[in-house]
Design a protein around this nucleic acid. Structure first.
Lengths: 136, 136
DNA sequence: AACGTTGGTCTCAAAAAGAGACTAGCACTA
DNA sequence: TAGTGCTAGTCTCTTTTTGAGACCAACGTT
């Protein structure tokens, strides 16, 4: 069992300890599994800017299927991040807007999005390097 | 086309603007689609604490299949967040540890994890409320 | 009368994920 | 010496998730 002893903690401890988390059944997973989807963050990012209607979102995110758009919006609504309002126009229109809870979530989440934007080159470079070494 | 005029921006603008993002093909999606998986954040959270070996990670995250553990670790390695080292022990052992890029990502990401932990009750409450209203 | 627009649902095919058997080489044990 | 377990995976099969696209009803426009 005695492995190599180079097991110094990566974080300082004041950052985010996370020890004592039951990986198998923890609240973090319960929350994160919902917003971890391919489309969730994208839709949250859009609705963080302003409210949008169903069709507008579909045009805004061109390669999402109506099926997944409906489903993701419902999931986000169920978890309380967005709310849905129907307007009795001639063909009824539906508007989605962010809730306070959603805005509260998007505050830290947007930091990750900004990180992704800033560090995209590093990630791409890492991929190239990995693929080259695998090619051998 | 003239929709309801209640379109005030949700964020102040100094927070995270995100306008001008091409939703269809943007670097943010390219990066995020990889770490958005069900297991990625979990493994990053574990490896942020300390290096782990394959079997240790499997025991740490009890309900991940070996198949997905292998695959997720390789994806994280390919994007440069973790690195893999093989030790020539009798049965060869493999250690995974976080890179500087991974630590850099985990800094904002951990904030989201902390948010999830803190706001789990609100999310659960929202779900109950939604399910009750749907039941009607 | 034909067509577009609204926000979806339904069905079927494709992709992804989960479950579990299987591998090889060495150590320990009976 | 044969049996068992450990290592880090891979392979196959089944189930779940996702994607593509047709379809809906009512109204407005052409």
């Amino acid at each position: 069992m005695a492995l190599n002893a180079s097991r110094k903690p990566v974080l300082d401890g004041n950052e985010c300890d996370m020890s004592g988390w039951d990986m198998g059944n923890c609240p973090v997973r319960d929350v994160l599994d919902r917003i971890a989807g391919k489309w969730s963050t994208l839709l949250l990012g859009a609705l963080a800017r302003q409210p949008y209607r169903f069709g507008e979102l579909r045009r805004l995110v061109p390669d999402i299927s109506q099926r997944m758009l409906t489903q993701t919006l419902r999931d986000l609504q169920r978890d309380g991040y967005i709310e849905r309002e129907v307007f009795p126009t001639k063909p009824p229109s539906v508007e989605y807007r962010m809730t306070d809870l959603g805005r509260s979530l998007f505050e830290p989440l947007s930091k990750v999005l900004l990180w992704a934007e800033a560090n995209h080159p590093s990630v791409k470079a890492a991929r190239v390097k990995y693929d080259e070494s695998e090619l051998a």
